[in-house]
Amino acid sequence: MTPLDLPARVNADPVLRRWGRDLSADVLLEVGGQSWLLAIVKGVITQVRQGPFLMPRWDVALRADAEAWADYLRPEPPPGRHDLFALIRFGKLKLEGNPHPFMSHILWFKGALATLRGAAA
């Protein structure tokens, strides 16, 4: 699974739709050298584009270390790699831009990105 799968996973999840009902933001997700732009409108991921981007515009960016992100996506992730805040704590995930969309919707971001965990991860 890749971030391109997020709309199918997230938009079909009624719990995430409820957590995200007030979330509208453009989010840049960067893992190592790869990047994706997520357009979110009221908790619905309306578009995902894969980089590279020449002049991306975003509200908040999440930039993850590739190796740590691979651990995060494991079905049973190891301590320190199992959660977005754990990655932040140990310097493996950087939050940039306006923190408000993320900090006001922490449970949505954690839940949405955790849907990428699975067999293909």
Binding site: E76, D83, A86, H100, M103, I106, L107, K110
Partner: peptide, 24 residues
């Protein structure tokens, strides 16, 4: 961020601590 007028405090507090638990 756990105590702001423009962020739900209860949901922010829960969001901050949720990952402190073991996934198992």
């Amino acid at each position: 961020w756990t105590h702001r007028a423009d962020v739900h405090g209860g949901e922010a507090c829960a969001g901050v601590v949720s990952g402190l638990m073991a996934p198992q």
